[in-house]
Design a protein around this nucleic acid. Structure first.
Lengths: 209, 209, 209, 209
DNA sequence: GATGAATGAGCGTTCATTCAT
DNA sequence: CATGAATGAACGCTCATTCAT
């Protein structure tokens, strides 16, 4: 088994339609994420998506009601995966500061290794979908957001975090991290281990009491 | 001159086409910004723009080569206005910390009062245009960015700012402010004077040595 | 055997696919008629039909070559049933007038009780299929049409029916009845026994010598 | 000026875009009516229509909001023209019987000379549009329908018309005429002057007291 | 210079039909 | 035989751009 035989397998996969049902859905999701991350929602016509994913145009609509639903579903997939990653080793019982650093490192680690997920997420957040989504999120915090709120409230109670609104806490804590990840992905800076730590640490400086 | 005669003037302006060349360009820019800020690039067809601006569809193309150019030009207009605002009373001779606070307050003040400019800017930054633009900016710092670099370098030299890359300095210093303004505009939080100060101050905490 | 066990049978029929070959064909025909009568040919995708009929999409094509054939077949089914109804007690030996009244009453009775059949028929007649069909019918009169021709010729011979072409006889005799049934089904009028008689009688007035 | 130079003119008309605004709308209406009359609503894609009409695909949408609107507008055009024809010499002051004959003759005359209008009308009436339309018409009678109602009421009052609902009067009076026109247009019969008179006369027989 | 009617490529989506299972 | 996932041509419609007036 070498690179050539693997290519030949891919050839079969595309041409001989040996993709299973799950394969198809996965292929669509993967291709859509790549295309949208790189070209944006409007730079990714369904026809291009179907072509690159190696499926018929109508096939996409078996898995996703329409383009909007596909876009939201894609975001949910990323969100779910990230939350799972975050919660896997979350140090629930450790001090607020340690939890804060854990979250910051997770965000950086996860998205630096999944640049497509990151760029997709950025596009999503900055779009009509994103605003609607954000509104719902603030009303009904779940997953990592729920952790963050707990963290925030615990920090407030213990007087280790400043007296600020939750929303502002999010902004101070995570905005620089997100921007730094973006700059890393776009090649404007390289985040080594020291720098990562420095960034998270600086964010902590901005919220700690 | 009363409200009625002014309305009549507007009527003439739209219906009798007595707009001068400069008027036309201004009208197009103003209308485009409003529409795009509210509906997005793709929710703003050129036909709608020309209608709302009170000019012919073809006329837009006399002032802007195509839609892309118009979009970039619009951004430059905002950028120019913001820079002018920022530089107007910039305390060049004062300490780094004071300059930093001045910039932070300026960003908040300016964009809270110009939510359309803010929303336009956000849309722009998060689009193919934005990335291209950002790349150019980092290579060739101008205006407020130039100030910021000077500030950063001065801060480094005086050992009042952490030893971090310039890009990361930007992220730590301004990302939370931008996000907070966004949350204010979207109604997720209300930035009063105390809170504004607290945010800028927290950003300073994150970059100061 | 009670209502519950019958429901259970239906459940089996749909879910466990114990429908026989004839059951399947019947189910497709019945469902297709309902759907098309209510939604029209173009409001009835094959996928919807297969779903509502409880069969696979491909299965329909084992019984009907394609959608066109299905549509024509459906019409033939209705036509056959109506002819059977008409011929069941047809008073062959009675006077022309009596036969005429019998046919008129039959049309009203049959279609008022089978509004789906009526609406299907109307849709069919008014479509490319309908014209083609009508052409064939006039060349080769069969069933009720054959009766009608016999009736017409007998009426002519006995000088109880006007000297008009057969086609015009059909128009005078049946058009008002069909239209009246349509108005009844659409709820624009209610045909009680008196009114039914009055309509048929009026049609007779228009063809009688 | 001969056939060739005329063809050349048509060539210019199509290729050099010398059609005026009104020409374009007319061309679209004319072409749409031809195509739909012959192929049906669903046999007439907008692309085919635009091609045959010699206009761009988008141009149709400058004149008609969408296909549905186009279809209804087309019907209204026919309806308007027919009403004008009918009302032109309508013998308002003459006896009911004479008015009845006038209307019958008008229907036959008009639609025999405009077979496309007739076939279009038939398609329209037998479609979701038609039913909606008919419902409105019965509620709010206008134009020829209004005349007919007046005629009906006058006839009732003078006891020259049977005691039947208005709707049934319409059915008896006009259904055979419409069907006969259809048969003429489809070539199943030829309506000469005698036959036309005989049909209208027979319809009168069916409604007269 | 200004206009806006006209354009047509391109979009998201549907659905009759096929064919591997 | 029956299935239903997959297909892709075709649909109605949009909109950035052009160009005759």
């Amino acid at each position: 088994m070498n690179i050539h035989s693997f290519s030949f397998f891919l050839f079969l996969k595309k041409k001989n339609k040996i993709m299973s049902k799950i394969d198809k859905r996965e292929e669509i999701i993967k291709t859509a994420m790549e295309l949208i991350a790189e070209q944006g929602f409007h730079g990714t016509p369904m026809a291009l998506l179907s072509e690159k994913a190696g499926v018929g145009a109508g096939t996409i609509y078996r898995y996703f009601e329409n383009k909007d639903v596909l876009i939201k579903e894609l975001y949910n997939e990323i969100d779910k995966k990230f939350k799972a990653f975050l919660m896997e080793n979350y140090p629930h019982e450790r001090p607020v500061r340690e939890c804060f650093f854990y979250i910051g490192k997770c965000i950086i680690e996860y998205f630096i290794n999944k640049p497509l997920d990151f760029r997709y997420t950025e596009q999503f957040h900055n779009s009509p979908y994103g605003i609607e989504f954000r509104r719902n999120k603030l009303i009904n915090l779940t997953g990592e957001d729920y952790f963050c709120r707990i963290l925030f409230e615990k920090g407030r109670e213990q007087q280790v975090i400043k007296t600020i609104p939750l929303v502002i806490f999010f902004d101070l804590a995570f905005a620089p991290i997100i921007w730094a990840v973006r700059d890393h992905i776009l090649g404007f800076v390289t985040l080594d281990e020291d720098l990562k730590m420095q960034i998270v640490s600086s964010c902590w400086d901005s919220v700690k009491m």
